[in-house]
Design a protein around this nucleic acid. Structure first.
Lengths: 343, 343
DNA sequence: GTGAAAGCGCTAACAA
DNA sequence: TTGTTAGCGCTTTCAC
């Protein structure tokens, strides 16, 4: 790789002049430098620049599972928002694995100027040390219990669960099951809590035998659903805490020969691309995904701008909560065997 | 951020000794250094290390669209394979946009030791200069027309198209439409060529009015399908070149009230998670996705190892082609109105 | 406007 | 085994 010295030599100037020219200052020998740069195919070393300046021109994004369409859409929203800012978006996938997340976080904080992260769990240890540093961090979709310094963009999970339960209850369901995500994570915990709270508020029984805490993955949803189905006293409806588990559960029900919604009503959290084309179309709690990414990117970018100003530390941390919405399609109906409920 | 000098000062040794200790050599004052590191919360600057050593401990992955489940799965395969190697995987999403791809490539080649990329087009200009450098590059899923230096992991697109056409022809279809991707990209070109070649080999008419070249995106598939459906002389079957366009096309047919496969048979390229739960279940060409990522990662990692050896440049570039497979489900059947074909 | 020189944090000779 | 020192490529004072 050619370096700035060589350019300086070819152009017959000092490295300082080349550097100035490259940063947009007007210099006498601009043309000669331009030529030298082109001839040598020179481009400045971002590593050396980073070392010197402490800035990287990049922001890091860490998601727990890039194969989850929700996070893919989130990233899309971030990309779109950051595009014009001059920053590069660098993405890391922790694959729902704590050691990987920790390694990623260490790697990306050293290579970027700020981080957008959906932490694995609310007690995420690898974020503790970050709180003391001055790196701007935005938590997206998943909260942590400490770190008041960080900005946050979340969705109203409690409301989502409530809408799902109220919808099912209004149809006449009492034996409503829940397949939840890890209770250590924000969406897992909040959707579970919202489910329990809504059931209690409506005077419906919260039956532990109808609650399965799983892992936000397709296989987990499949196994949990199969398990619920094989109970002696089956539920007439199920509320599933994310898209991948819903897909798994639908596959399980398909294999088991269950008829939806006749045998069981299904509400998923997160819309999916094909929801309307499923047999039957899927009733879901829908939430903004691209917009959630965009909001977190805007928050981070404004922090980065702020960093250049003296009174940076004064500004409060922001917390944005986006609304969610029930979308009723064909996978929910009144329970077929109402009499079973009377036992 | 504390640096190595401070650690040295606290431990009462020189920076060189600290550096040696950190790189695993045995030093007399190891314990004191260990303590200083812990107390100060020190971790070495990867930027400074990179500048000094020229190595980054990371590999870059550039995909055209992270919201495409195929690429998400590809990334998963890469992650899984790289996990134990000590390298970090850093991901970039070019969003099917050439300037973004170029910027990403520039950014990642400077921050990583090697690149896995699915280039936008076969004449990708931003890869030209990389060929001259010594950065290891693996092309995955999409080829380029130059650059014999690079390794490649592709799938047998021609065979995929042939299998799709033969399946439809065997059912009795003659008016087979094709919704293709950009002809400048490998999968777009190869699947289109495969379609035309298979049609000709079977003596079926290749009707230009039944071919739409689109963009691999959901909206493109939807628009193309609507367009085909509104033709005076409709096709009885359609072969669609990727998953996202297939989803778009299915949505369009749903809105138009078309019955699948009665009114039109559909074959998609790429399996989708919910294919079996669709109404009707979707017939597709399936290909290995995770495995394709894993293969490209293995190729890159072996290049990186090679780089430490003297005769690195001697080794040939590799080319791996993975097979694809027709999966027949419910979206294909014999055409309903055979008589229309006789006109 | 320009050049000399210091230094960002680290590692690898080279001496001791 | 350890310390001294040079230097990776760049930017930015400070003199001129």
């Amino acid at each position: 790789m050619t370096n700035i010295q060589e350019v300086a030599r070819v152009a017959g100037v000092s490295t300082a002049t080349v550097s100035r020219f490259l940063s947009g200052q007007t210099v006498r020998s601009g043309e000669a430098i331009q030529n030298a740069v082109r001839t040598l195919g020179y481009s400045p070393s971002v590593v050396a620049r980073s070392l010197k300046s402490g800035r990287h021109g990049a922001i890091g994004v860490i998601v727990p599972d890039i194969t989850n369409p929700f996070f893919a859409a989130l990233v899309k929203g971030i990309n779109h928002e950051v595009r014009a800012s001059g920053y590069q978006v660098i993405l890391g996938n922790s694959d729902e694995d704590a050691p990987q997340e920790e390694a990623l976080l260490a790697a990306l904080t050293q290579r970027t100027d700020g981080i957008i992260i959906a932490p694995l769990v609310e007690g995420d240890l690898s974020l503790v040390r970050l709180e003391k540093s001055r790196t701007p961090v935005v938590l997206v979709d998943r909260d942590i219990t400490f770190a008041t310094r960080f900005d946050r963009v979340l969705v109203d999970n409690l409301s989502g669960s409530r809408q799902a339960v109220e919808h099912l209850a209004a149809l006449g369901h009492r034996a409503i099951a829940h397949i939840g995500g890890p209770l250590g994570s924000t969406p897992g915990r909040a959707r579970h809590e919202g489910f329990v709270a809504a059931m209690e508020r409506l005077g419906l029984p919260v039956r532990q035998d109808l609650i399965r805490i799983s892992d936000f993955r397709e296989e987990g949803g499949r196994d949990s659903m199969r398990d619920l189905w094989n109970q002696p006293d089956r539920p007439t409806a199920v509320f599933i805490a994310n898209n991948l588990m819903t897909i798994g559960a639908l596959n399980a029900l398909h294999v088991l020969g269950a008829r939806i919604p006749h045998d069981i009503s299904v509400v998923g959290f997160d819309d999916v691309a094909l929801a309307e084309l499923l047999d039957p179309p899927l009733t879901v709690i829908r939430r903004p995904d691209i917009e959630q990414g965009a909001a977190s990117a805007r928050l981070l970018l404004s922090r980065l701008e702020q960093d250049f100003e003296p009174d940076a530390s004064l500004s409060q941390s922001h917390r944005i909560t986006l609304p969610v919405q029930l979308v009723v399609r064909g996978s929910t109906s009144a329970p077929a065997h109402r009499e079973r409920e009377q036992e």
